[in-house]
Design a protein around this nucleic acid. Structure first.
Lengths: 147, 147
DNA sequence: TATTGTTATACTCTATAACTATA
DNA sequence: TATAGTTATAGAGTATAACAATA
């Protein structure tokens, strides 16, 4: 008997986690910190409040993550130009370099994955996976609003 | 421009995590503990050493997870019949009920997901996702053996 | 009065190393 | 001597609540 589609997807999710965890193994980075770096690269310099919302995590947690990334030289805290309560968190130049490399590897992995799919199945997979992501997003949003 | 296939898959992985975390929210269960319960349901009564290997986690960690699940009444420690060093961990009857219900919901979610895919795309998605899982498994295995 | 970030406190998951009781 | 599990210790990620400085 063949495994459920759901199990395949869960397996893929687990393998991604393993693969990414090992990718920045030895760099001192962790999944939560890398996620914050990604958010920073996309959003640009941001207040910790903004980062807390984008990461869907408590402000207190952001303090801890930024503390760690500041110690390791990946981000810098600078004063907010107009609001003296707030700080702006931004990537250091070396972190920008790191994130650029990670983005390249990301695109390469994407190409590797596509090449693993039979050419005649690629369009259907693209459509199907998009439909799955949208459907799941609706399910999660419904469950959240029910809370 | 349309998002990369990789980004779609990562999004699905993230939504799964959210969905599952909320599914056993309020039950006192956590992802790591639910994972252990799944392993126990599939493997039956097991020593903690065996569980550590199946979960790919340190024996010490299993001690902590079993402590928590014992407190919450999900598992029981019983003496090993022939090896007085070891204990057997097994699901309590109420946890068996819980896991059976979770398995039903799992199958239902699978059907919901399939219904989100256009019927003419389903076979291709099944093949494509299987190919992706296998390809990723090879990539991860290679990376591990390189370490 | 509301917002930004931090200190205080606590819990879970995770690991390694040392130790105890048994094999 | 090797194995099963626990104690000891440590660090990351997470949360809530109280508090200071500022808006």
């Amino acid at each position: 008997m063949n495994p459920l589609l759901l199990d395949r997807l869960l397996q893929i999710a687990e393998l991604f986690q393993k693969d990414m965890a090992r990718a920045f193994d030895g760099t001192g980075l962790t999944p939560a910190r890398v996620h914050l770096l990604w958010v920073l690269q996309h959003a640009g310099p941001s207040t910790q409040q903004a980062l807390a919302k984008l990461c869907a995590v408590s402000p207190r947690n952001i303090t801890g993550l930024v503390d760690g990334l500041e110690s390791s030289g990946h981000v810098r805290r600078t004063p907010h130009p107009t609001d003296r309560r707030a700080v702006l968190v931004e990537l250091t130049p070396s972190a920008v370099t790191t994130m650029t490399r990670m983005q390249q590897e990301h695109v390469e992995l994407n190409e590797t994955l596509i090449s693993a799919i039979a050419p005649e199945d690629r369009d259907a997979v693209e459509r199907g996976v998009t439909a799955l992501a949208e459907h799941l997003a609706v399910l999660v949003a419904e469950a959240e609003s029910a809370t």
